[in-house]
């Protein structure tokens, strides 16, 4: 994308809540987490390491898709309108000043599902088509 459409897109963000993305990403938690819905702010707090407690009182364990897959970049674009270098710069500050650690990075999509089903506090983002009974949708990242 060249500069001007991008600039226009960014400016118009204040008018429309979400950029119409090309895929249907959903934020999911473990089905036993005791959580029904999360607000966008709550998901931001969890994934950006600000506050990692689920409303049900258990510790949130956020999971990132591999950086090689488009899901990760799309997720952060939809969630905070940031590109991956900005997300990495954000985490570099926190990692090298001994603060919060970033979400656990999975090596592949299967590992994301594996972790989501193993831990009660697990929270991740996947394509809607991958959702099954082991996980629960708590936020939809789409128009």
């Amino acid at each position: 994308m060249s500069v001007w459409p991008r600039l226009f897109l960014a400016l118009s963000l204040s008018l429309i809540p979400w950029v119409r993305a090309n895929a249907d990403l959903v934020v999911v938690v473990n089905a036993r987490s005791g959580v029904e819905r999360l607000t966008t702010d709550e998901v931001i707090n969890i994934f950006m390491g600000r506050y990692r407690q689920l409303p049900s009182g258990i510790k949130a364990l956020p999971i990132d898709q591999p950086e090689t897959l488009p899901e990760k970049a799309r997720f952060y674009r939809l969630l905070v309108n940031k590109e991956l270098p900005e997300i990495n710069a954000y985490w570099a500050r926190l990692i090298f000043s001994g603060k919060t650690i970033p979400p656990q990075q999975a090596r592949n999509t299967a590992e994301v599902m594996d972790w989501l089903t193993k831990k009660r506090g697990a929270i991740g983002y996947i394509e809607r088509s991958q959702v099954d009974s082991r996980v629960k949708i708590v936020l939809e990242l789409e128009p």
């Binding site: 990495n88 710069a89 954000y90 570099a92 500050r93 090298f96 000043s97 001994g98």
Partner: peptide, 22 residues
């Protein structure tokens, strides 16, 4: 936290050596 820690007198001060984060 206990041990050797970075000073955070001002906001962002404890990561001022990490150029990539600034």
């Amino acid at each position: 936290r206990v041990g050797r820690l970075g000073t955070e007198f001002y906001m962002l001060a404890d990561s001022r050596m990490v150029g990539y984060s600034n």
